[in-house]
Amino acid sequence: MYPAGDGPTVNDVLAAGQLVYTIDRQRLRLPPLTPAKLEQRMKTPPAGPVVPPRVTGLFSFYEGGGIGNTTPSMTLTLAELHGVLVSPRYSTRTKALREATVDTARKAIKKTLDYVTPAGVFSHRANAGVQSLSGLLVLDFDHLPDVNAAWAALMADELLAPGLAMLFTSPSGDGLKAIVWTDPEADHLGNFRGYADYLKAHYAHLGLVPDEAGKDLARACFVPHDPAAWLAPPPDASAAA
């Protein structure tokens, strides 16, 4: 495109924020959508008679009935989910779950928790029920040997940073849940495999190997109480400052 060799370099494009590396650092991808662009997409009317699910940044929330309830009660944004996580709403159930000494009791309590489907908005919790895509997926890390070390590694990784949207401790207290932005050019499974393969190659020693169930588009993510839950600032926050 620039035969004279005077065009922008890869470093120029990265510095300008026009593109970011994919998780395997082999390709470049579009950066996460800014809140303004998400709002614009949500307001843009569908074109044509058949339109694939749009990326909206919204996902379904399932309240009451635990995992047995497959009908969502509302849609949430990341900021709204973060507000729920840090509030005392689930503090009693989370405390009871973590203090339970019998595994069957822990599983029973966990099944009563409310949950979200981070990948999108669904008419019902099933892959066929997807109505719009959020552009997100959840990575579950269970039974970590050192939760704090795993947290620090995820936060410090420069390749993960552009895609890391939210991080919080799992309901059981011995794991983490990372909600990440996906590559808009790849499907859900391809995005999951990209993150999973990278994490397994670099952080298996910390237990950061995502639960394979995350490859399911309708993957449920239980909502605990975590006053330390981390939410990434908006991608355009620094530009607006």
Rank of each mutant, 00 (worst) to 15 (best):
A105V: 15
L189D: 03
K43A: 15
P171A: 09
L113E: 03
V86E: 00
L208D: 04
A15W: 07
A96M: 14
T56E: 00
R93K: 15
G7V: 12
A196E: 04
L217N: 02
N127P: 05
A186N: 08
S134W: 04
V20M: 06
E185P: 00
R98K: 11
L58K: 14
G64L: 13
H82W: 15
I67E: 06
L231N: 06
Y195A: 04
P8K: 08
G163V: 01
T92P: 02
V147I: 14
A228R: 14
A152N: 15
F168W: 08
F168T: 00
D6L: 15
P224A: 07
S91M: 11
A100Y: 04
E80F: 01
P3T: 05
W230S: 11
W181Q: 02
V55Q: 02
I109M: 06
A213K: 12
D183T: 10
V13R: 02
P35Q: 11
T75H: 09
L160Y: 02
K215P: 00
F122S: 05
L30A: 15
Y2C: 08
K95F: 12
H124D: 08
A161V: 02
G175Q: 07
K177P: 00
L97Q: 04
M155D: 06
D6K: 06
V84I: 15
A128D: 15
E80P: 01
D103W: 08
Y115L: 09
A150G: 13
L137M: 13
A79V: 06
T117P: 00
P227M: 07
P235C: 08
S73H: 03
T112A: 09
Q18F: 08
L81T: 06
N148K: 15
P49A: 12
S170T: 11
N69C: 09
A152F: 07
S132C: 12
P46N: 13
S172L: 13
H202A: 06
R29Q: 15
V51H: 13
S134L: 10
V86C: 04
P88T: 11
Y195P: 03
V130M: 08
D187M: 04
L78A: 15
D183L: 07
P210W: 06
R54W: 01
D197G: 00
A119K: 01
A229N: 07
D211E: 13
A119G: 07
L137Q: 06
P53A: 08
A228N: 13
F122G: 01
R93G: 00
L30T: 09
G48L: 12
L85P: 01
V121M: 04
A126H: 14
L137V: 05
G65P: 09
A4G: 13
A150M: 09
L144P: 03
V147M: 05
G175I: 12
G129Q: 05
E212C: 03
L97E: 04
R125C: 10
P233Y: 03
G5P: 10
Y62H: 14
Q131C: 07
A237Y: 07
R41M: 11
V130Q: 10
T9L: 13
N69E: 12
A16H: 09
